[in-house]
């Protein structure tokens, strides 16, 4: 009898320690695919949720935007929750979009909230735009969700020009906590397509600089975040298979090594000029260690 009681007690302990009481049927939840944060004094949270098809099984899922306001991101999500009957599932969220005004004032709170949410998956990316709710509400999505479109378009751009924007939420949060530079692609709607219109560079919770697409490309080479692609600088082009960069403390120069498959005649010269110009102009804002570079080229396959 005593043994049985101990066994039952142990089983109950094991069961309760699993902390696994989140039973949710797939159709009784809203699947959040993107979250937008806006506002200055009050925070406006817009979530894009995908709902199952309508009355007919053949209908594809549709997305809708639900919004809520509050003093903090958590309050705003509470207010949003009160408007709906289903749970919000953040596990499949692919994009967190922050309005530019909010990014200048309350970015830290948004990052902390995202980290505390615990439900975000490891692949969620962050973006900045003029107005997150407006961007999400545009109803000309190619796929089921605006969030998917954004993530897909940015990935495509990354592949084309070789940039790694390093805008994964958890990487950003880590950089934020360590006081390092982090950056978000600035996105906007253009002709039914999401395009990248620059790169916002932050340190702690401040926006330190805004780079144009060309500057962002050169910045990616300097910071060793470019894996190679087909790039254009003015009328010059290069097909780069890989790129590496490191700061040499002896020469006090950034040493950039490019493996080039194919290029136009003056590409290297233009590349060096423009990169040095970027380093000079943004040295203070971004905190480059030097404004000098050396570029080594080798023939790639």
């Amino acid at each position: 009898m005593k043994k049985k009681a101990i066994c039952i007690f142990l089983i109950l302990i094991v069961v309760s320690l699993t902390g696994n009481g989140d039973y949710t049927e797939a159709d009784s939840s809203y699947i959040v695919t993107a979250i937008g944060f806006d506002g200055e004094e009050k925070i406006n949270v817009s979530v894009e949720v995908v709902t199952a098809g309508g009355s007919e099984r053949s209908e594809t899922p549709t997305s809708e935007i639900i919004s809520g306001k509050g003093d903090t991101p958590m309050d705003a999500v509470f207010s949003l929750n009160s408007q709906i009957t289903k749970n919000l599932l953040f596990d499949h969220c692919t994009a967190i979009i922050i309005g530019r005004n909010l990014s200048k004032t309350n970015l830290g709170e948004v990052l902390k909230y995202g980290n505390e949410l615990k439900e975000l998956n490891f692949a969620v990316d962050m973006f900045v735009c003029e107005n997150a709710s407006q961007l999400l509400e545009k109803s000309d999505s190619v796929s089921v969700s605006r969030g998917f479109d954004i993530a897909a378009n940015v990935k495509e751009t990354e592949r084309e020009i070789g940039i790694d924007y390093k805008n994964n939420f958890y990487e950003i949060y880590k950089a934020y906590e360590h006081g390092e530079n982090y950056s978000f692609p600035f996105i906007k709607n253009s002709d039914k397509k999401i395009i990248i219109d620059g790169l916002s560079v932050y340190k702690k919770k401040e926006e330190r600089s805004f780079l144009t697409n060309e500057e962002a490309l050169l910045y990616s080479f300097v910071t060793d975040n470019n894996g190679g692609g087909k790039i254009y600088l003015d009328d010059q082009y290069a097909n780069i298979s890989s790129g590496e960069a490191k700061f040499n403390p002896k020469t006090k120069k950034y040493e950039i090594s490019l493996c080039i498959k194919d290029k136009s005649r003056r590409f290297s010269e233009i590349f060096k000029q423009k990169t040095e110009k970027l380093l000079v102009s943004k040295k203070q804002e971004i905190g480059f260690k030097t404004d000098k570079i050396t570029v080594k080229e080798r023939q790639g396959i």
Partner: peptide, 21 residues
């Protein structure tokens, strides 16, 4: 599909959700 929804790929999750409605 009920406890560890995050482990399912999103398109598959959407399909499951849609077909269960």
């Amino acid at each position: 599909s009920t406890f560890h929804i995050q482990l399912l790929p999103t398109p598959f999750m959407l399909t499951v959700s849609e077909l269960r409605s």
